[in-house]
Design a protein around this nucleic acid. Structure first.
Lengths: 194, 194
DNA sequence: TTTTATTTAGTACAAGTGTTTTATAAAGAG
DNA sequence: CTCTTTATAAAACACTTGTACTAAATAAAA
C-alpha cells in the first residue's frame, strides 16, 4: 500500500551508519542524532525502525557478530588440512586489513560499553573462546594435536595470543604489521600441532 | 598565609575518585559533577584544582601509569634469578587480584577514550611493549635466553599473551582465575629461557 | 584584628542528550 | 481522483553536560 521499504535492509544500513560513527568518534559519538544524520535520516525516521537507542545498540552489535561468524564458518567448511584450517580461521578472527580492523574496533567499543550496561538483553556471546575450544576439538579428532599437551593451558595461551594481537591491532595499528601477525599466529599453531 | 592544603595530595584524591567512578559507571559516568560528588567536593572546588575536564583526565591517567611503573621497578630491583625476575615483573603487569584488575580496567577505559581524543597532550606511553623489550635485554645479557630464538617474534608473542590475559581479566574476570594466569605466564617465560 | 590568599557553595547558561508528539509526504487501493 | 497505510520530517520536551561567574567562608600572617 505505501512506499514499500525493506525494513531489514534499512535496519542494517542504520547499524552500519552507527559503526562508521563509532569508528570516527567512538561510542560517545554514537548519539541518536549523529547516527540519524550519518544515515541520512531524521531522528523520527530512526525511531521508526528502532524503538530506542538500546535496541539499535544491540542490533548493531549482533550484526557485527553475524558478519564475522559467517565468514569464519565459510572458512571452517573449506577442505583444508587441520593445521592450515586452524591457521586460516584464526587469521580471519585477528584483524589483518583495514576492513576487519574496523570491525574489531567497533566490537571492542561495544564490549567496553557493555561492561557497564549489564541490563541489556540479546547481546551475542564473545565467540572467540568457544571457537578456539572447537578448533582444539578438531585438531584432536584429526590426530593433529601434539601429544602430551596440557590442553586447558594451551587453549588459554592461544586465546590470549589471538585477543592480544587483536587488541594491539586496535590500539597501535601503525606498529603492528600484518606479516608479523601472520607469523605469530602460524608459530603459535605450529607449536601445538604435528 | 592562607589555609594550607597539600595540592598534590588533593589532586591525587580527586583522581582516585575518578577511577572509582570509571570502575562503576565507565568513562561516561566520569562527569565533572560525578567526580566532584564522589570526592565529596563541590564542582567549583574541583575546578580549582583542575582547570577543566581534560586536565583531570590526563592527570588521572598519568597517575595510574606512575603507580604501576613504580611497582614494576621495585620488583625489577629485587635480587632474583633472571627468569624469576621476568616472571615476577610480568605477573605484576597482568592483573591478578581485584585491586590490580581495577587498575587495568581504568587503564583500558582511558586508552579506549583516548583513541578519539588525539588532541590531548601529556599522555603517558603504553609501557608494556618497552618493558618486554627490556626484559628480553636482561635475559640476553644474563645468558638466560634460549639460543636460536627469533627475538622479534618471541617478543611479539609474549606481548600478545600479556595483554591478552589482561584483556580477558578485564572483560571476563569470573572465568579467568588467577592460578591459570600464573600458569600461562610461567609457561610462556619458561619456553624462551634456559 | 585586619589583611590576604585560598577554598567553597551556589547559580546561570549554552550546548547537547534521548524521547515524544505532531505534522507532512509518498504510494498504492478503491 | 480520494482514502488509507506507511514512511519521514520537524519541533517540542525534559533533562544532563561542561563551563563560567559570583559571593561567601576560611585560616594563616601581619
Amino acid at each position: 500500500m505505501p512506499k514499500i521499504v525493506n525494513h531489514e535492509k534499512r535496519r542494517e544500513q542504520i547499524a552500519e551508519s552507527m559503526w562508521r560513527i563509532i569508528l570516527e568518534k567512538g561510542m560517545e559519538g554514537a548519539t541518536v542524532r549523529g547516527v540519524a544524520e550519518e544515515a541520512g535520516l531524521s531522528v523520527g525516521a530512526l525511531r521508526y525502525y528502532f524503538k530506542d537507542q538500546d535496541e539499535l545498540f544491540v542490533y548493531a552489535m549482533r550484526l557485527v557478530n553475524e558478519r564475522v561468524t559467517g565468514r569464519v564458518m565459510d572458512i571452517a567448511a573449506r577442505p583444508l588440512p587441520p593445521r592450515e584450517k586452524v591457521i586460516a580461521v584464526l587469521l580471519e578472527i585477528v584483524p589483518m586489513d583495514d576492513e576487519r580492523r574496523a570491525e574489531t574496533d567497533v566490537w571492542f567499543s561495544f564490549l567496553a560499553h557493555l561492561k557497564h550496561r549489564k541490563d541489556l538483553d540479546g547481546i551475542p556471546e564473545h565467540a572467540v573462546y568457544e571457537a578456539i575450544q572447537k578448533l582444539f576439538g578438531l585438531l584432536e579428532a584429526e590426530g593433529a594435536l601434539r601429544p602430551g599437551l596440557d590442553r586447558e593451558l594451551e587453549a588459554e595461551r592461544l586465546y590470549s595470543i589471538i585477543d592480544g594481537l587483536a587488541l594491539h591491532a586496535f590500539l597501535e595499528p601503525e606498529r603492528l604489521d600484518p606479516s608479523m601477525v601472520r607469523r605469530v599466529v602460524r608459530s603459535a599453531v605450529e607449536a601445538i600441532t604435528l
